[in-house]
Design a protein around this nucleic acid. Structure first.
Length: 479
RNA sequence: GGCAUGGUCGCCAAGUGGUAAGGCCAGGCUCUGCAAAAGCCUUAUACGUCGGUUCAAUUCCGACCCAUGCCUCCA
């Protein structure tokens, strides 16, 4: 039984789908006015893994990830660049798709855009006005927070506290400083749509209420996003949706922790943010996924070069062993000394499920995987591994791979990619390296170890590590 | 000020009312011409402080200290 931490109740709860066998989940995507950063990467990978796990567990998953393609920041940025806002959003939607594909994300079931749902947005606002929860002032419409009882139930805030802490708002039109905009009138030269209240555009939160309910129903299972969205974004979404339908909006609210850089919050205003494309120049996508999954999704995650480099070293160790296992299986010889560990493998699989069932504890699973890495290296060294056990293990790893998107059985995807990067970083070719390997072999034959070591050290300085095999051949790997 | 979250080995990071996963780094050993890889061992007397409950607490409760986040656009 899957346990899932619900922000609203602040407890782990047993997951029971609203509709038998189905999971309907929504995760806030991004507002497309800039390249996606590594915080987005964490968020995306988190919900990607959650949706993959539900699928793996046999659920029929409908996963909706929205794109907010109209808002103040977009307008501002487009104006700065002197281009139509649609040109800006198209550019960054494209960039987002390529980033997210590089990270190995599965495509969500739907990826709706705010500007394609203006009619539904207007409908929802009208409903809120009818229900006495929204009011029009001039050509703007606001949500009346105090009219919705239950406001604050997600974030655990009460209105009085908010009121006293509320920053003075320049929007004097609002009846209450806590009220927020559902519809904003257009200033000259701003993108606009016709509405009963005049030309304008939707406020920030309304598009998520509309798109989630349109594709998932008025009540759905899971709604996710970054911690910072709990308030006000998700609180407002909840108020809008439940205020309009008078039905519960979301069963489980899920929020991932932040990704910090060098222990500092990453933010666009501080300018210390790294984009996904930046880091992918430096690291293999799997390293990023691995790095993200070594920490529980709700905990903060600190991005430092050191931490990510460690992650790469760990993954290399995993793949080096995986390659040994592949070779062992294709040789197909079970040594006489082989010991049967089927029972332990069965436990491994159960532990994988139990860890993931426990609020998606990917970190625990990774710990379990590395216990096996050590086990197999030893078994291979000591000739105690059996082919059928290893095959069985590789099958379990394939299951884990299908959920995590890392730990593939195709080791080349990772190891060869690192080698290619080492080559291109040094403007070397495979032939250059092979030539040096041959030269070193000659030197070794002539007991000219000084020259042999020189070659090895030279290559090592370039991140290329030679390895002499027992059969006399030499291979290399990237470090 | 209000509301949250967290403090576990040098670093990263799981977890539990009763001998505390895993990764990285470092040192030693085996192997090797020397290395690398791998393994084994060491660092391990690691659970913020002080009280309380308990036969037993790192794990529950309370206080305190420290850090972080939200309360304003933000994943």
């Amino acid at each position: 039984m899957i346990q899932i931490y619900n922000t609203q109740t602040r407890k782990k709860e047993e997951f029971t789908p609203i509709q038998e066998g189905k999971v309907k989940m929504y995760a806030c995507g991004l507002t497309v006015y800039d390249y996606a950063h590594i915080g987005h990467a964490r968020q995306q990978v988190t919900y990607d893994v959650i949706s993959r796990y539900f699928k793996y567990r046999g659920y029929d998953v409908t996963y909706v990830r929205n794109i907010t393609d109209i808002d103040d920041k977009i307008i501002k940025r487009a104006n700065e660049q002197g281009i139509p806002y649609t040109e800006l959003t198209e550019k960054f939607i494209k960039a987002f798709h390529s980033d997210v594909q590089a990270l190995g994300l599965q495509t969500p079931t739907h990826e709706p855009r705010a500007t394609e749902h203006i009619a539904e947005i207007i409908e929802l606002i009208e409903k809120l006005i009818q229900n006495g929860l929204a009011y029009q002032v001039d050509n703007d419409v606001f949500y009346s927070v105090r009219s919705f009882k239950g406001y604050g139930k997600l974030s655990g805030k009460n209105i009085e506290d908010l009121e006293s802490g509320a920053r003075v708002d320049v929007m004097e039109k609002k009846k209450d400083p806590l009220d927020f905009a559902l519809w904003k009138s257009a200033k000259p030269d701003e993108p606009k749509w016709a509405s009963p209240w005049g030309e304008g555009r939707p406020g920030w939160h309304i598009e998520c209420s509309v798109m989630s309910m349109k594709y998932l129903g008025e009540t759905f299972d899971i709604h996710g996003g970054g911690r910072d969205l709990i308030f006000p974004h998700h609180e407002n979404e909840l108020a809008q949706s439940e205020g309009a339908t008078k039905k519960p909006f979301v069963k489980y609210w899920v929020h991932n922790g932040f990704l910090n850089i060098d222990a500092e919050k990453m933010s666009k205003s501080l300018g210390n943010f790294l984009t996904i494309r930046d880091i992918l120049k430096q690291f293999h996508p799997e390293v990023i996924r691995y790095f993200i999954l070594t920490t529980h999704y709700r905990s903060p995650l600190d991005y430092t070069d050191q931490n990510v480099t460690n992650a790469q070293a760990s993954l290399e160790r995993f793949y080096t062993t995986q390659e040994r296992l592949n070779t062992f299986v294709s040789a197909g010889q079970t040594p006489d000394k082989a010991q049967d560990v089927s029972d332990k493998l069965a436990t491994f699989k159960e532990e994988f499920l139990a860890s993931m069932d426990d609020d998606f504890n990917t970190a625990k699973v990774i710990g379990q995987v590395f216990e096996w890495v050590r086990f197999w290296n030893k078994a291979l060294d000591e000739n105690t591994a059996s082919v059928s056990n290893v095959k069985n293990y590789l099958e379990i790893m394939a299951d884990i791979h299908s959920v995590f998107g890392i730990f593939s059985s195709d080791t080349n995807n990772f190891l060869a990619a690192l080698k290619e990067k080492a080559i291109s970083d040094n403007e070397l070719s495979e032939q250059d390296i092979q030539k040096l390997i041959v030269e070193r072999k000659e030197a070794k034959k002539n007991k000219n170890f000084k020259r042999a070591d020189e070659i090895r050290d030279e290559l090592l300085a370039k991140g290329i590590q030679l390895k002499d095999l027992p059969d006399g051949t030499t291979t290399w790997s990237a470090v």
